[in-house]
């Protein structure tokens, strides 16, 4: 009886193991790291307490592994944001701002959340966030909770979801209760 139970437990464990091993954080990271880049359309909604309706913006994104990300907003106003290695630049109308990430630790932390996810760099993510993964390979959700208090002052939680190596949405829940949701639709690479 006891033996039978033990055997059953063993079998159960054996049976359960492949299911666990099939989808965990290292695997997600490996899969994400395989994504060499591509183009995508995005729609971003910002829910702001002061406003009755969300502010919606849309445009296209371009990612090239591991550290080039371009976000071109087409509506409501043209805007270009480029993240290239250590530099982030923002162009809107005649204005252009360039920041060096090294000098702006908070901005760097934000950038690390998305760049770390896109490139599957777990170490970079864990510098500032506690990670929690749920879901399956085709429909996963990665929760980032800031471990750095200076980031926690700005953002409570970042939720990234996707399927396989493709990020589908990024949600920022800000400390003041406002939130923004960006949904991403990949455009087939030619």
């Amino acid at each position: 009886m006891t033996f039978a139970l033990r055997l059953a437990a063993c079998l159960l464990t054996l049976a359960a193991m492949p299911a666990f091993a099939a989808w965990d954080l290292p695997q997600l990271m490996t899969e994400l790291a395989r994504n060499q880049g591509g183009r995508a359309l995005f729609t971003e909604r910002k829910y702001i307490a002061l406003l009755d309706k969300p502010v919606v913006s849309s445009g296209e994104m371009h990612y090239r592994a591991p550290d080039y990300l371009e976000k071109r907003t087409l509506s409501p106003r043209l805007e270009l944001m480029v993240l290239d290695k250590d530099e982030i630049s923002l162009e809107r109308g005649k204005q252009k701002i360039t920041l060096r990430l090294r000098e702006q630790p908070e901005v760097l932390a934000f950038v690390a959340s998305i760049r770390g996810t896109l490139s599957g760099n777990r170490a970079a993510l864990e510098q500032n966030y506690a990670l929690h993964l749920s879901g399956q390979r085709d429909n996963w959700t990665l929760n980032l909770s800031p471990s750095n208090p200076r980031i926690a002052e700005l953002v409570t939680r970042i939720t990234i979801s996707g399927s396989r190596q493709q990020v589908r949405s990024i949600e920022y829940l800000q400390a003041d209760g406002d939130r923004s949701v960006m949904s991403i639709e990949p455009v087939d690479a030619r």
Partner: peptide, 18 residues
């Protein structure tokens, strides 16, 4: 101003919008 909220440039503006 509301359009600017869509941009990262609008981050500073949000708390001042009122």
């Amino acid at each position: 101003s509301i359009d600017l909220l869509a941009s990262p440039m609008g981050m500073m503006l949000k708390s001042l919008l009122g």
